[in-house]
Each structure stands twice: as structure tokens, then as C-alpha cells.
């Protein structure tokens, strides 16, 4: 079960690569912010279609806090800020390497403290070793050039 979920997470990573690849073509023609705006618009339509054709999920009891709906704001902010960072001395590879590092650091702190209403999760030694290997490998890949 956990293995399947893990493989699904890696498949999400593949989707992210395909998205980055196509969005980069659009951004070359139009600029980073417009490219992301267009991708969000098309993504909204596609997500809505997917929602309509998939079985409805029952909403659990209780109210859904308003901020649960606002995950798109930090996500969209990333596009704007990374456009600035990419144009600095960090360049694309430096920016990506630091963004990956920031994600893993956030994940560790969030799991440990249970940030943003998430359940606390103990981080095991194995978890940290996996994170260390994958992150350093990813940074080597990003900085190592094609």
C-alpha cells in the first residue's frame, strides 16, 4: 500500500517534469508570469473536467477552513519569485537546487511540528537518510549539466 503511494508520488514528479518542459516553451515565447497564468487557466478547465467525470467524494463532517482553499496563492507566488531568482547569479541550476533543498527542509519541519493542521509524524533515521541521498543526488543532477 505504502509502496503504491510512493510510486504514485514519483509519477507526480514525472508529471512535474513534463509540465516544466512544456511551460518553459511557453515562457520563452511569452514570459514566466504569463506562461504560468495560461497554464493555471488551462489547468483549471482540465481539473474541472476531471472532477466532473470522477465519482463524487463525500465531504466529512465539520466546516472546511477558508484557508484550505488558498493553496494556489503560495504556488503562484513561487512562479513570480523564481523568475527573479533565476535572473540573479544563482542562475537556473542554483535556483532549482536551493528550491529543492527548501522543500525538503520545510517537509521535515512540517512533519516534526505538525504545521498547517497536518498530523505530527516522527521522522525516522531511515527517512533522513533517504532524504539526504535523494536531495544530494538531485542537486548533483541539477548542477552536473546535461
Amino acid at each position: 500500500m505504502r509502496l503504491t503511494t510512493g510510486l504514485l508520488a514519483m509519477a507526480a514528479g514525472v508529471l512535474l517534469t513534463l509540465m516544466t518542459l512544456t511551460n518553459a516553451v511557453l515562457a520563452q515565447h511569452t514570459g514566466a508570469v504569463f506562461a504560468s497564468w495560461a497554464a493555471h487557466g488551462i489547468g483549471a478547465v482540465v481539473a474541472l473536467l476531471l472532477l466532473l467525470v470522477t465519482p463524487r467524494t463525500a465531504t466529512p463532517e465539520g466546516r472546511t477552513p477558508l484557508w484550505y482553499y488558498l493553496g494556489g496563492i503560495p504556488g503562484a507566488l513561487v512562479v513570480v519569485l523564481s523568475a527573479i531568482a533565476v535572473n540573479s547569479e544563482l542562475a537556473l541550476s542554483g535556483t532549482i537546487a536551493l528550491m529543492l533543498t527548501g522543500q525538503v527542509i520545510f517537509g521535515a519541519v512540517s512533519d516534526h511540528l505538525g504545521l498547517l493542521d497536518t498530523p505530527r509524524r516522527p521522522i525516522t533515521g531511515t527517512d533522513l537518510a533517504v532524504a539526504g541521498c535523494v536531495l544530494s543526488g538531485a542537486v548533483l543532477i541539477v548542477l552536473g549539466g546535461a
Partner: peptide, 18 residues
């Protein structure tokens, strides 16, 4: 999966496919 493991696995899929 939790925030850290999910981030790590997505990154793995991302860089390997790249």
C-alpha cells in the same frame, strides 16, 4: 506520506525523468 517523504519522492521522480 507526510510532507517530507512526499517531497523527497516527487523530487526523485522529477530529476530521474528529467
Amino acid at each position: 506520506l507526510g510532507a517530507m517523504s512526499a517531497a523527497v519522492l516527487v523530487i526523485a521522480g522529477q530529476v530521474l525523468s528529467a
